[in-house]
Write a protein that binds this DNA or RNA. Structure first.
Lengths: 240, 240
DNA sequence: AAAATAGTGTCTGTAAGACAATATAAC
DNA sequence: GTTATATTGTCTTACAGACACTATTTT
């Protein structure tokens, strides 16, 4: 490829991926232990430099696919972080993506890979960095601006879950209405109204009844639903 | 600044700015006539390469400030476009911003600078590229993926105007409720309900009455309002 | 039967849409 | 007075929140 562009030094470009999942009713994100300086031994988001021949989304998918079981998950661009001093090595701009994965679709993993609990110190959509805690509730040391990036991911997810079908991405294929409600509560950080949630979701046409029910639950079993991809709804609206 | 990073070739990084304003009841965006190849003589968004010592937002503000009267306007990151072939010169990733400016705060300008009318060929939030027309309603030839970028800007603005105070950014300091309604209609591309719009906005606490009214309008003059920056509302919520 | 959650029906309050009625400035 | 839009008030409808009641499974 001919490169007519100026050869002056220009910023480096990375992608970082906020992989969000739900464990024990709380949001968790995947962190890796960093080996090299800077921030050696600290925890960071999975990421990598963008190659010349791959799109941004492909770079994010490549970073994800390095972990088992993470092909074909929800993946969306989040925000691009470009503070001048965010990387001590030099000027590195990072395009952040976030991914949603059903509850622990992969093993909690090795000593240098873990799911950290996301502790959100603000309400609603206020925004700001989050804290990342281990299973013993100790705060993990996190490198770069990655606590800030996860904060933006939570903010985006909170703003989106009420009007876009993203809650399903955190659940297995079949789920009950209560499980879906609990996903919304974990994401939004507040209790949700059970009655209107049920009515709203049933009326939305997004739920495909499976005819099956829970088993061995110690109480009346709930009906299992499946997410109905909104193909029918779209064609109804007459786009073609 | 020490640069420990690999010296391999890496993507170039630009910012492009979608400057939106309202003329004759329709959205317009600022385009510049491009002098050099590629896309010479075609129309493109204002943009430029990101320097090593400036943040992304600073780069976007710098591009804007090159035009008279465009300091201190609404400016927000939109999306980062990274298709491999979006720039024929080589790999160029562009962080797009969008700006909102009160009706023609600057002259329509010279032969190589114009406000193009934004024609949106899709409904609601469907998304996709837009067409950019001149005052004679002829479609302008637009370089790069800039019709696509403006499309994302319109999509973002449509999604945001109903719950965030962005309509004000397209109006002069003092305005009437009807003018604000017409801003919403121009952005959303559909007629809006007058009655509930009035009630909703008056109840929102975002409008500061000025006590003054329109003049010389040939009918009963409407009250002039001013946007109330949501400081009071925030302190009420107790964030301090 | 007891426990626990699922699911249904009903009432109420709020807000949007529709529409009627009145107000006020320019001409 | 006529015209044109502003502004207020009322009615209806849709939906969320609240709550009472019934259903169904395991223990």
């Amino acid at each position: 490829m001919a490169d007519d562009l100026e050869r002056f030094p220009h910023p480096h470009l990375t992608v970082d991926v906020v992989l969000l999942t739900l464990r024990q009713g709380a949001l968790h994100t995947l962190l890796l232990r960093r080996r090299a300086a800077p921030f050696a031994q600290q925890w960071v988001l999975p990421g990598g430099f963008v190659r010349l021949d791959e799109t941004l989304e492909a770079a994010a998918a490549r970073v994800l696919a390095a972990k088992p079981g993470l092909a074909d998950v929800f993946l969306e661009q989040l925000f691009t972080f470009g503070d001048v001093a965010r990387d001590p090595r030099g000027r590195v701009v990072s395009v952040a993506y976030y991914a949603l994965v059903p509850a622990a679709q992969f093993g909690d993993g090795s000593a240098d890979q873990r799911l950290a609990r996301v502790v959100v110190p603000w309400r609603d959509l206020a925004g700001g960095p989050v804290e990342l805690h281990d299973d013993g509730d100790a705060r993990l040391p996190v490198g770069f601006d990655h606590e800030h990036i996860v904060g933006v991911a939570v903010q985006r997810l909170r703003g989106k879950i009420d009007y876009a079908p993203v809650g399903f991405e955190l659940l297995p294929r079949d789920f009950t209405l209560l499980q879906l409600l609990q996903v919304h509560e974990a994401v939004l950080g507040t209790a949700q109204n059970k009655d209107s949630f049920r009515r709203r979701l049933l009326a939305s046409g997004q739920l495909q009844p499976t005819g099956r029910r829970q088993r061995d639950v110690g109480h009346r079993p709930a009906e299992l639903f499946r997410f109905r991809r909104p193909r029918d709804a779209k064609t109804k609206k007459g786009r073609k």
